[in-house]
């Protein structure tokens, strides 16, 4: 659908709303000036959203969008943080060449980036702005949480990795004072670290307790400690945290279709959707449909 058609629908709705509420507002003592202000502001904000502008023809623009959106969708979670850093940096530089200094600062400390990002991102397209705007300001609170989710976030948003590790190390030191510093490092950076470290730790704890009470208890404690140590990798590592993170990440995207369904059916892994009355925001632009039929494999 051409953008002009969407614009017409939107214009109709704006006119309808303003006409319909005129009486209600005048009953409450508002004059036409208020209604005019409402309409002007609404139109201005709609214009600023750029949702009705034609999509740039440039293929390069498409590619850049995709590069930028990958970290958001989590599809490149396993990619090195260096790659993400370069992609983000390039994107920001492209959008705002004069801010290269700010970008480098941004990559150095998250505290600085939190204050700089609104300025940098004010020049990006709405989709990109949404992405950064919703994620980056949330980072400082996230940093105070200890856990794999913090590490996961920092993988995407580099520059704070060192800091996160040091925070986690400090907490671990409080909890497990007997663990050596070398083991701490391996715990943070190596996936096979936790079971080894925890086994040792449990053994040390139980031995100390056992010495106070007796040899029999000592043996029991050792067994308990070992059993716990064997179970530890699952709860301590990724399982719980991943399940916490997944919903938000899975459903997180800037491309949103709001609509109603007539029928959604499935045959084995083949899904069919019959939708109606939809408003789509794809790559920052709005489109509408009266009916949409879709097929997808799960």
């Amino acid at each position: 659908m051409a953008a002009s058609d969407v614009k017409k629908i939107y214009q109709d709705v704006i006119n309808d709303v303003c006409t319909a509420v005129r009486e209600a507002l005048s009953e409450e003592g508002y004059d036409d000036h208020t209604l005019q202000e409402l309409r002007t502001l609404w139109l201005a904000k709609l214009d600023n959203s750029r949702a009705l502008e034609p999509l740039p023809v440039s293929i390069v623009d498409h590619v850049t969008h995709r590069e930028f959106r990958h970290p958001n969708t989590g599809e490149t979670n396993n990619a090195s943080s260096l790659n993400n850093k370069q992609a983000t940096g390039m994107r920001l530089n492209r959008l705002h060449p004069a801010s290269s200094t700010a970008v480098s600062t941004f990559n150095t400390t998250y505290a600085t980036s939190a204050t700089n990002s609104p300025i940098l991102l004010s020049t990006t397209n709405p989709g990109a702005r949404n992405y950064i705007g919703t994620n980056f300001p949330n980072r400082p609170p996230n940093q105070t949480n200890i856990g794999n989710s913090t590490m996961k976030a920092s993988n995407q948003l580099d520059g704070a990795n060192d800091e996160v590790i040091s925070i986690n190390s400090t907490k671990k030191n409080k909890c497990q004072k007997k663990k050596s510093k070398i083991i701490h490092i391996s715990f943070q950076l190596d996936g096979t670290g936790p079971p080894v470290g925890d086994d040792e730790d449990d053994d040390e704890d139980s031995e100390l307790e056992g010495n106070d009470v007796g040899d029999e208890l000592d043996d029991d404690d050792d067994e308990d400690g070992n059993e716990e140590g064997k179970e530890d990798p699952n709860p301590l590592c990724s399982d719980d945290d991943v399940s916490d993170d997944e919903p938000a990440e899975l459903f997180d995207t800037d491309n949103v279709v709001v609509c109603q369904y007539d029928k959604i059916s499935r045959n084995k892994n083949k899904w069919r959707f019959i939708l109606k009355s939809g408003v789509m925001n794809i790559e920052g632009r709005d489109y509408v449909f009266s009916k949409a039929v879709g097929d997808a494999d799960w």
Binding site: R66, R69, H70, T73, E75, F251, T253, N255, V256, V257, V258, C259, Q260, Y261, D262, I264, F273, L275, K276, S277, M280, I282, E283
Partner: peptide
């Protein structure tokens, strides 16, 4: 688009 979220109410 690489990824799209569809939210649909009962028509």
């Amino acid at each position: 688009a690489d990824k799209v979220k569809i939210v649909a109410c009962d028509g």
